[in-house]
Computed example of a mutant assay.
Amino acid sequence: MQKSGFWSNPLVETAGYFSVVVLCIIVTMVLFELVTKYNNWEQIKKGNIAVALATGGKIFGVANIFHYSISRHNSLPEMIGWGFFGFTLLVFAYILFEFLTPKFNVDKEIEADNRSVGFISLTISVGLSFVIGASIS
């Protein structure tokens, strides 16, 4: 059955998905703010490159997961649900990264502008977003 009408217009669909995903990214960034021990936006304002790298990786990772979710699901609720499931896996990966580095505290290193830790955090978020996205069914 072919869609018709205002809501099936590609421009309207794109604007709708864009709006929903931007809102979801804002929500996920608020949730990441609660997970980290530092204030992301305050640290970025101060010029903390490590926090900017880690935060940018999270934003890219969440957007990439939603990219896969949009491309695989026809309904908005399904897309949002799978996107948030993917986000949950990304948060789990962040917590796992902290757990697997017992010799240093990831949050403290990123807050101290340790750019190598910030870059690894970015890489984990981006890399796993492709794995999570590919597995979204």
Rank of each mutant, 00 (worst) to 15 (best):
M1S: 12
M1D: 14
Q2P: 01
Q2T: 09
F6A: 05
S8K: 03
N9A: 14
P10I: 11
V12E: 05
V12M: 09
A15W: 06
G16E: 08
Y17S: 07
Y17R: 07
F18P: 12
S19L: 11
S19I: 13
L23F: 13
I26D: 12
I26G: 03
V27A: 05
M29H: 06
L31Q: 09
L31M: 02
F32L: 14
L34M: 01
V35K: 08
Y38S: 15
Y38T: 06
Y38Q: 09
N39K: 12
N39W: 10
N39V: 14
E42G: 00
K45Q: 08
K45C: 11
K46F: 02
G47L: 07
N48S: 03
A50S: 08
A50G: 05
V51D: 00
A52T: 08
L53F: 03
T55K: 07
G57V: 05
G57F: 12
G57R: 04
K58P: 10
K58S: 15
I59E: 07
F60C: 11
A63F: 10
I65D: 01
H67K: 08
H67Q: 10
Y68I: 06
I70K: 00
S71T: 05
S71H: 03
S71Q: 13
S71K: 04
H73C: 06
N74I: 05
S75T: 15
E78V: 00
M79I: 01
I80R: 07
I80Q: 15
W82Y: 05
W82F: 05
F84E: 07
F85T: 13
F87G: 10
T88D: 07
L89W: 06
L90Y: 03
V91T: 03
V91K: 01
A93W: 05
Y94V: 03
Y94F: 06
L100M: 12
L100K: 09
K103H: 15
N105F: 08
V106C: 11
K108G: 08
K108V: 02
E111Q: 14
E111L: 12
S116R: 03
V117S: 00
F119D: 01
I120H: 04
S121I: 00
S121K: 02
T123G: 15
S125G: 13
V126E: 10
V126P: 12
G127Y: 11
I132A: 00
A134T: 07
S135L: 08
